[in-house]
Measured scan of single mutants.
Amino acid sequence: MFKRLMMVALLVIAPLSAATAADQTNPYKLMDEAAQKTFDRLKNEQPQIRANPDYLRTIVDQELLPYVQVKYAGALVLGQYYKSATPAQREAYFAAFREYLKQAYGQALAMYHGQTYQIAPEQPLGDKTIVPIRVTIIDPNGRPPVRLDFQWRKNSQTGNWQAYDMIAEGVSMITTKQNEWGTLLRTKGIDGLTAQLKSISQQKITLEEKK
């Protein structure tokens, strides 16, 4: 169930391209415009997507990853294993993690069937560096609404905000991946996880038929 919630949630996290980005210092504006741009692209490019579902990787690479804190999220997933990894191991892992996100997020976007969304009203940021933004996803086919909290983090150097995690039903996506990959990290280390991520990233994206 959580895996499905995570995939549905990713439908609204794909941010804007650099040329049309919203105010990078306001995570609420980023979330709002990102959702609108993403849904528009999914709707307008269905012919290309249906002809070649792996085209979704391109959308992810162009529109999402430049505005997601990939390395920060990847380091959180590694936890204690990050500090013990060599620079070469980290570089290989982050490259594999990025390719994994292209496949995983692309597969999530393949679930698009006309969903709509509501974003919580903007709250004062103050001096906060981590801000959760509640998004409610509404399914046109009558499924119950899904309420999610996207975690946005302020870059201490640039002042810009980027998304790095999502919490559904009190469970963090980062925590879920830590639990899912924990045994592999304990037995085969970061190299074993890197190899698995490379394998997963090679899987073809498949479209979910409308139910």
Rank of each mutant, 00 (worst) to 15 (best):
M1I: 00
R4Q: 00
L5N: 02
M6P: 08
M7A: 11
M7V: 08
M7I: 08
A9R: 02
L10V: 04
V12E: 04
V12N: 12
I13V: 02
I13E: 15
I13K: 07
A14F: 15
A14E: 01
A14D: 01
A14S: 08
P15H: 07
P15L: 15
P15M: 11
L16H: 05
L16K: 00
A18R: 03
A18S: 02
A19P: 13
T20L: 10
A21W: 05
A21T: 07
A21R: 04
D23E: 00
Q24A: 10
T25Y: 14
T25R: 10
N26S: 06
N26V: 07
P27K: 11
P27S: 07
Y28V: 08
Y28E: 02
K29W: 05
K29I: 12
M31P: 08
D32C: 02
A34P: 03
A34F: 01
A35K: 15
A35Q: 02
K37P: 06
F39G: 04
R41N: 01
R41F: 01
L42Y: 14
L42C: 15
L42V: 11
L42E: 05
K43M: 14
N44F: 09
E45N: 00
E45Y: 00
Q46D: 15
Q46G: 04
P47R: 07
P47M: 02
Q48S: 00
Q48F: 02
Q48C: 10
Q48R: 06
Q48D: 03
I49G: 06
R50S: 04
A51Y: 13
N52I: 01
P53E: 04
D54N: 00
D54I: 07
Y55N: 01
Y55W: 15
T58H: 15
T58M: 15
I59M: 04
V60D: 14
D61P: 03
D61C: 00
D61T: 11
Q62P: 06
Q62Y: 01
Q62V: 06
E63N: 15
E63Q: 05
E63H: 02
E63V: 03
L65P: 07
L65M: 14
P66K: 01
Y67D: 06
Y67N: 10
V68T: 05
V70N: 14
V70H: 01
K71Q: 03
Y72D: 03
Y72R: 01
A73D: 02
G74E: 05
G74S: 02
A75Q: 00
A75V: 07
L76T: 03
Q80A: 11
Y81V: 04
Y81H: 07
Y82V: 12
K83G: 07
K83F: 09
S84A: 02
S84H: 08
A85F: 06
T86S: 11
T86P: 02
T86C: 05
P87C: 15
P87Q: 15
A88Y: 03
A88K: 07
R90W: 13
E91S: 08
E91K: 01
A92M: 02
A92Q: 10
A92L: 08
Y93N: 02
F94W: 00
A96V: 12
F97Y: 01
F97C: 01
F97T: 04
R98T: 01
E99Q: 15
Y100T: 15
Y100C: 03
Y100P: 09
K102A: 15
K102V: 07
Q103L: 05
Q103G: 07
Q103R: 09
Q103S: 14
A104G: 09
Q107K: 09
Q107M: 08
Q107I: 02
A108H: 09
L109I: 15
L109H: 04
A110R: 04
M111Q: 01
M111L: 03
H113R: 13
G114F: 15
Q115W: 07
Q115M: 13
Q115R: 09
T116G: 09
Y117N: 10
Y117Q: 10
Y117G: 03
Q118K: 12
Q118P: 02
Q118V: 09
Q118W: 04
I119L: 04
A120S: 09
A120P: 08
P121A: 07
E122S: 12
Q123T: 08
P124G: 11
L125C: 12
G126H: 00
D127I: 13
K128F: 06
T129H: 06
I130R: 13
V131T: 08
V131Y: 13
V131I: 11
I133N: 10
R134M: 00
V135P: 06
T136Q: 10
T136D: 01
I138Y: 12
D139T: 06
D139G: 12
P140Q: 13
P140A: 05
P140Y: 01
N141K: 03
G142C: 14
G142K: 07
R143E: 13
P144I: 05
V146K: 13
V146A: 10
R147T: 01
L148S: 13
L148G: 10
L148V: 08
D149T: 09
D149G: 05
F150D: 14
F150P: 05
Q151V: 13
Q151N: 06
K154H: 01
K154P: 14
N155Y: 04
N155F: 15
N155W: 09
S156L: 13
Q157G: 06
Q157P: 09
G159F: 01
G159T: 13
G159R: 09
G159Q: 03
N160Q: 13
N160F: 07
N160W: 03
W161H: 11
W161M: 07
W161E: 07
W161I: 01
W161G: 04
Q162N: 07
Q162K: 11
Q162V: 14
A163Y: 11
A163D: 14
Y164P: 04
Y164W: 12
D165N: 13
M166N: 13
M166T: 09
A168H: 14
A168K: 01
A168S: 03
G170I: 14
S172T: 02
S172D: 00
M173P: 03
I174T: 09
T175P: 08
T176F: 13
K177G: 07
K177L: 13
K177M: 10
Q178N: 00
Q178M: 00
N179Y: 14
N179D: 09
E180Y: 04
W181R: 09
G182L: 13
T183K: 12
L184K: 06
T187L: 08
T187S: 09
K188V: 07
G189I: 01
I190E: 04
I190P: 08
I190K: 02
D191H: 03
G192M: 15
G192R: 06
G192A: 00
L193G: 07
L193C: 04
Q196W: 00
Q196G: 06
Q196E: 00
Q196L: 15
L197F: 03
L197K: 12
S199I: 15
S199R: 11
S201F: 14
S201D: 00
S201V: 08
S201G: 10
S201Y: 11
S201W: 14
Q202M: 11
Q203E: 06
K204H: 15
T206Y: 15
L207F: 05
E208Y: 15
E208R: 11
E209M: 01
E209V: 11
E209L: 14
E209S: 09
K211N: 06
K211S: 09
K211E: 04
